[in-house]
């Protein structure tokens, strides 16, 4: 088992000319606009983004359900899709954690797996530590909250990198909501298998976010957002979460969420 929270000890490479994007299955099927925004943001920084069409899912759903062999078959198929020695940027902290840390265990019989895992970067981690992105904020003044998924926080240190990116936005006031570090209750199949516990958790998370009096919350994980936005929608609250890739892009371009490609209607739950 890899120790967690060692992201700051990584040796980060110089800014590359090419990267792979791992889109994740949730983004692919539910929130493709976040993926397109991530690509646009990377391309604006002069990076060529390669999106292998053979990719599907990191294998986490099966892995977390105890179906290790099934997870392994899917994980192996992913690794094959990213042969070049360039960074693999993952636009979800929990899928990133899966590919960076858990693949080492799951695919330990593959001698090349260490090299692959070393190339995996969570999206905000990549922006902060590899691109050293300094976003120029063109947006209007607003208050936002940041929700970091637990795997992203504890396996990839995204609460630090996400915070750093948003803090650099001159017109954005980053508000810390109550119980900021507490889990939203998603947990993949947990939300279905133990629906009542999950419901109690997301009720609290959405309550704290609403109480923080922000215009939106930002997250680097669509799993949590599917959960929290779904709860907010059910409660008829207007607050919604937005993927950090879309949020940054909109701030840089000076577009509010509603202006940008009608995304709120199309993408938010």
């Amino acid at each position: 088992m890899q120790p967690v929270n060692t992201q700051h000890l990584r040796n980060y490479p110089k800014k590359p000319t090419q990267v792979y994007l791992f889109g994740t299955c949730i983004v692919d099927s539910f929130f493709p606009d976040s993926g397109m925004d991530a690509i646009e943001l990377l391309e604006r920084e002069g990076i060529e983004v390669i999106y292998p069409q053979g990719q599907s899912c990191c294998g986490q759903p099966a892995y977390n359900s105890g179906y290790k062999e099934e997870a392994k078959a899917v994980a192996m198929a992913q690794v094959k899709q990213f042969p070049l020695d360039i960074p693999v940027v993952v636009i979800s902290g929990s899928c990133g954690g899966m590919m960076r840390h858990h693949y080492l265990d799951l695919l330990s019989d593959d001698p090349a797996i260490n090299n692959f895992c070393q190339r995996v970067f969570e999206f905000t981690e990549f922006l902060v530590h590899v691109l050293r992105l300094k976003p120029i904020d063109q947006g209007e003044k607003e208050r936002v909250a940041l929700h970091t998924s637990c795997a992203a926080r504890r396996e990839m240190g995204v609460h630090i990198t996400g915070n750093k990116l948003i803090s650099q936005l001159a017109n954005v006031d980053l508000v810390l909501h109550d119980y900021e570090s507490e889990c939203c209750g998603f947990g993949g199949t947990f939300a279905v298998k133990h629906a009542d516990i999950s419901a109690a958790m997301v009720a609290d998370k959405s309550k704290h976010l609403v109480a923080s009096d922000v215009v939106r919350y930002v997250s680097a994980d669509h799993g949590c957002m599917m959960n929290i936005n779904g709860a907010l929608d059910y409660q008829k609250e207007s607050l919604r979460g937005e993927h950090i890739a879309s949020y940054l892009l909109n701030r840089i371009k000076g577009q509010s969420k509603a202006q940008s490609k009608g995304q709120s209607a199309k993408e938010a739950l």
Binding site: D28, S29, P32, G35, G230, L269
Partner: peptide, 26 residues
């Protein structure tokens, strides 16, 4: 309605075109 999920949440909506398809089109 999705068992468990929609007792406190609305159901997520599948996108009309996937990320794979959008990138291919682009």
């Amino acid at each position: 309605k999705l068992a468990g999920w929609t007792s406190v949440r609305t159901a997520p909506k599948l996108a009309a075109t996937t990320l794979h398809q959008q990138i291919k089109a682009k």
